[in-house]
Design a protein around this nucleic acid. Structure first.
Lengths: 144, 144
DNA sequence: TTCAACCTTAGAATGATTCTAATTACTATT
DNA sequence: AATAGTAATTAGAATCATTCTAAGGTTGAA
């Protein structure tokens, strides 16, 4: 997936909700915006923190995020290193590199990867739906 | 990693504990055995259930599992589809296929995979420590 | 045996997420 | 515009995996 601006991302999330019969309420709009503007891999708690300033409750945040995930437009990304579930707005197969020192997360795209995963799955007689690839190591800054 | 019998696996876990200065107590032994005999991808709760028959408390189970994970001899494997953290006794890089219908988990080894992950990591200037690759789809039986 | 460090344990605490029950906001129909 | 029915939101309670605590056991070295 190419670089996408926050506005474009937010609109995409909302559009997907509408397209599936969910009403584009101000609350859902705010959640989509907060997700899109986060830039990284937000947790539900982080989004709650942002939108509570607009009087939006945490139940709504969890509901909206769960809905978006069901629609396949965001992807949950549970990590060993974090007690919160993080979400990835990029649902194309890619690798998430997590620095075991500083915790930073970097999306790494490699065109061969999804092909390989799909192939391995089909070798086992299975179909490929989605992937969650996490690699732990030291990032460039923490290597030393 | 080739096929390994439960006895061999259990001994390996215990040996690793001893080797790092942890005493091979009966409780730890029981936890290692329960992990090894599970066969699949056990959760802490499942192990608690097994060893509680021998009067072993859940704190001990969680402690032992956490220790084994720190030693790198088992690997935690949080899934989107399961509220419990599962553990993988196979720490060599491989793909875990999870059936989104029936929940069954299949380990798929592919020699190219770890090489590719390490390469992608190094492209980003990072070092490779471990990987957690999960692919969701329909298994052979649930495809229809 | 004595001591200190290590282990285990029951039960309490934590904390992310989900649920509940009540209210509010739509939408379609008259 | 009024009504009715459905969808959405909310505060706060409940859930439940995991972690913590404090107290008592075990071990091994000297």
């Amino acid at each position: 997936m190419a670089i996408m601006q926050p506005e474009e991302r937010a609109r995409r999330l909302l559009r997907e909700l509408e397209h599936h019969g969910y009403r584009p309420t101000p609350q859902r709009e705010a959640v989509c915006w907060a997700l899109a503007r986060h830039g990284g891999h937000p947790t539900a708690a982080e989004i709650v923190e942002v939108v509570k300033q607009h009087g939006i409750g945490q139940a709504t945040v969890y509901n909206t995020i769960t809905t978006l995930e069901k629609l396949g437009v965001i992807q949950s990304m549970p990590l060993n290193t974090d007690e919160h579930t993080r979400y990835d707005l990029d649902t194309t197969p890619h690798m998430n590199f997590v620095c075991s020192q500083c915790g930073s997360i970097i999306d790494c795209h490699a065109p061969q990867l999804d092909l390989m995963l799909a192939q391995i799955a089909s070798t086992a007689g299975a179909t490929f739906e989605s992937a969650n690839v996490v690699v732990y190591g030291r990032c460039e800054r923490c290597k030393n």
